[in-house]
Design a protein around this nucleic acid. Structure first.
Lengths: 150, 150
DNA sequence: GTGCTAAGTTGGAATTAAGGACGTACTAGG
DNA sequence: CCTAGTACGTCCTTAATTCCAACTTAGCAC
């Protein structure tokens, strides 16, 4: 037990469990409600509830009530949550390059036309293509992403 | 089950399990042998063996024999493994900022004296300080890291 | 009343991890 | 020869987690 004292380990204690980063991905993609996150990640509802609670306790997400009767909540990223976005982007690029077979399921690019280097922070990004079936668009923290058929 | 088709999910299928990224951290820190990785991560030996096998199968690490009699192996990063380094660095920075209390356990800086922005790839980096008890130094893929008392 | 959506909770089965002992193979010391 | 120590795992038993489906609560629409 124990292991080296290290901020990587500390970070993983917060976001390193299964489904945590995928839940965060959904929030980043604009899906902020429990059922949407559950559907899009494929996580069990009980585990997802536990992960979201933990992320809220850790200050990565904030639970915000968007309806009084009946009470309904959505999850929005805090500053710490937003700071994880580059990590998710890098992870996606790594997955594109070394794991995913075929073309990347989602591609981001600058709305300004510049190419998107593997560097953070990124601003002015827009999803150019997606093999995902869902449609919609979303903007957050300087990012803009569109999902849909070309 | 199922969930969105996404390279983040694909990446996490390879490196998202508990201990995988910490094992990779050790390899990145220059600890490439089973016992060292086990000690420094705190993982159970059987689980660690399973993770390392998986990482080798996924092409992230390579198992290299460094001794014939008795056969002894060490784990070295492949190109895919090296490509994960920026992600670990970003995760460490995120942990430093939002999780770890007190000063960062490990600090990297450019050997050229320039400050180290939160951007990849990094070259010419050197660990300036560490609260870790262990001593030693290590260089890999343009990084140089020193662990020890100032 | 029936069905639908949303955001979870509950209970029981299945899976995974923890922790330590053990095996094998070699080296060093007495 | 006998004992220790190092290295790299595997095996076994117990403990903790996760999965899955069903259920709850609360309101709205028909």
């Amino acid at each position: 037990m124990a292991g080296r004292e290290c901020s990587i380990a500390n970070a993983l204690a917060v976001v390193g469990e299964r489904w945590s980063l995928l839940a965060l991905r959904e929030v980043m993609f604009g899906e902020r409600r429990f059922d949407q996150i559950a559907r899009n990640t494929g996580a069990s509802r009980d585990i997802l509830a536990a992960r979201l609670r933990k992320l809220v306790e850790a200050g990565v997400l904030e639970k915000r009530q968007y309806e009084q009767h009946p009470p309904r909540y959505e999850y929005v990223p805090t500053e710490a949550g937003k700071a994880l976005q580059p990590i998710l982007m890098n992870l996606m690029e790594w997955g594109d390059r070394y794991v995913t077979e075929g073309p990347p399921p989602t591609v981001w690019e600058h709305t300004c036309g510049a190419e998107l280097p593997s560097c953070t922070p990124r601003r002015c990004a827009r999803a150019a293509a997606s093999r995902s079936a869902a449609s919609g668009s979303y903007e957050w923290a300087g990012f803009s992403r569109t999902v849909g058929d070309p």
